[in-house]
Design a protein around this nucleic acid. Structure first.
Length: 485
RNA sequence: GGCCCCGUCGUCUAGUGGCCUAGGACUCUGGCUUCUCAAGUCAGCUACGAGGGUUCGAAUCCCUUCGGGGCUACCA
């Protein structure tokens, strides 16, 4: 059917808040599918709910997708042949179709008030009947209409759902069928003429020639309504987009994602030092897998491997621990240059460096010794702070650990031997300290080096000691040991 | 309540009638390695929601049941 057509996939969020991991997972699959098939990735903003969508959220959404590397071929800022891509700029189009549906009898004016509708629903619930509009206004006489008008009532446009049922094949769930007894006549346009989601989404998918709709499963039951709009537009069944309803991403406690059970905003992950590729790799594994016990994929590999056939139908729980593990893997896989570029902003923002060339040079030398010991970029500043700080002080909780006699002795001996060390290299430092502390004083390495570590780096947890001392320099290293005596 | 979707280790998943006494990853526990923290490495814990069928044989097919979720708006 659509085998010869160019694949066109859209991501169409309604930015009523910041994009969260669930939205992003959908965007990622949309993007991956478009790229995998060599099709087009269309980005559309569904801002018909003007009360809840703000420009700020729209801008944030654009920024988030860009940061993640999910570049779109058509959409806001880049344009495209089927624009505009903001629904708020397409109002006249929806109005035209609403009128057309009215003219052709697919839709009708409904004058019922909110109170009347509520009363109907109440009665249905009480009688245990299927809820939904009772088609009260389907066949109003001209007199009745006139009466509503004199009452000052303004009508909404309602789609007429005929008897029967709608069946479609979901690419993930197989054949799904809805009896129209449970798909009531639904509103297409408000009484001020503004369109509702069901109208706008269907009209745009048709006009933008969308071939595949991959979206959240919360929209599954709205699909028959969309299909009815296609029919009203005169679209042939073989030209309907193919649907694939993605499973939910749930929070830790099996509840919907929220701030309470794990941070959901991508902006938070960005600030916390997660790499876009780690986020995408992890999210890709929620509801999909490449098979063959594979998990680690680059963006490129995701594009190559992604198919809807391998997408699950059951919901997945978001697990921060797994994300952390993947983030650590991705950080370790970074080239020195890339790692440096990711690190610098975190170091400057934390006030560890100001960005001077000499500082950057030192950071460059220090990064290799911490690359495999962090899981997020945010861990970099505290780890390298000792190299740059002007007002060095040993951490409070470590102070007591070097206050005893033995520690004092270790530090004194270290100071003496190191002072005469000519070549200040980590090999040299290690050789001297091992000879003096481990062999001569017969101390356990962890005890002996522990004291030096605290004196020099200020903490009992640090990057490898000898490399750290080399980077710090002889003068500062000895200065700190002396100060701790 | 009604309609629809879903159900494999704690979590993400592999698995499409025999390769499954169910594999991988994360977490957790223990060991090795080790200058701390990591990383690496070895081992261990733990699952086919339940009950019926079909079949020589079922995690895989069918039915029932239980559980979870979505929708039921002039939200999306």
């Amino acid at each position: 059917m659509s085998s010869t057509k160019e694949v066109r996939v859209r991501f169409a969020p309604s930015p009523t808040g910041e994009l969260h991991v669930g939205n992003i997972r959908t965007a990622l699959f949309d993007w991956a599918y478009a790229r995998h098939t060599g099709g087009r990735f269309v980005f559309r903003i569904e801002d018909t709910d003007t009360d809840r969508v703000t420009d700020e959220y729209i801008q944030a959404a654009l920024g988030t997708l860009r940061w993640l590397g999910l570049e779109w071929d058509e959409g806001p800022e880049v344009g495209g042949p089927y624009g505009p891509y903001l629904q708020s700029q397409r109002l006249d189009i929806y109005a035209k179709y609403a009128q057309q549906f009215l003219d052709t009898g697919f839709a009708y004016h409904c004058y019922c008030s909110a109170e009347e509708l509520e009363a109907v629903r109440e009665a249905q619930r009480a009688a245990n009947n299927a809820p939904g509009y009772n088609a009260h206004c389907r066949n109003l006489t001209p007199e009745q209409v006139a009466e509503y008008l004199t009452l000052g009532r303004k009508p909404v446009v309602r789609m007429l759902m005929p008897e029967g049922s709608t069946t479609f094949t979901d690419l993930i769930r197989g054949e799904v069928s809805f009896d129209h007894n449970f798909v009531p006549d639904f509103v297409l346009a408000r009484n001020d003429g503004s369109p509702l989601y069901t109208l706008a989404v269907a009209v745009d998918d048709v006009l933008m020639k969308i071939t595949h709709v991959l979206r959240g499963e919360d929209l599954l039951s709205s699909t028959p309504r969309q299909i009815r709009v296609y029919q009203a537009m005169g679209v042939a069944p073989e030209d309907y987009p193919l649907f694939a309803h993605l499973p939910f991403v749930m929070g830790q406690d099996n509840a919907k994602l929220s701030k309470r059970n794990g941070e959901v905003s991508i902006a938070w992950y960005r600030e916390a030092g997660y790499l876009p590729e780690a986020i995408c790799n992890y999210l890709a594994l929620l509801g999909w897998s490449p098979g063959e016990d594979r998990e680690d994929v680059t963006m490129q590999e995701l594009v190559e491997l992604f198919t809807v056939e391998r997408v699950h139908s059951s919901p997945a729980r978001f697990d921060m621990k797994k994300l952390e593990a993947i983030n650590g893997d991705k950080i370790r896989a970074l080239t020195p240059e890339a790692f440096l570029n990711w690190s610098l902003p975190f170091l400057t923002r934390a006030g560890v460096i100001t960005g001077r060339e000499s500082e950057v040079a030192l950071v460059k030398l220090a990064l290799p010794i911490i690359q495999e010991r962090i899981t997020t970029l945010a861990e970099i500043p505290p780890m390298l702070k000792f190299l740059f700080t002007q007002d060095f002080a040993v951490a409070q909780d470590s102070l007591s650990k070097i206050a005893d006699e033995q520690s004092k002795k270790v530090l004194q001996v270290s100071l003496d031997r190191l002072t005469s060390l000519a070549e200040w290299s980590h090999e040299g430092i290690e050789g001297v300290l091992r000879a003096a502390l481990i062999e001569e004083l017969a101390l356990k390495p962890r005890v002996a080096f522990g004291a030096v570590r605290i004196a020099v780096t200020g903490s009992h947890i640090s990057p490898p000691l000898f490399e750290s001392m080399e980077l710090l320099g002889k003068e500062k290293s000895l200065e700190r040991i002396k100060a701790s005596l």
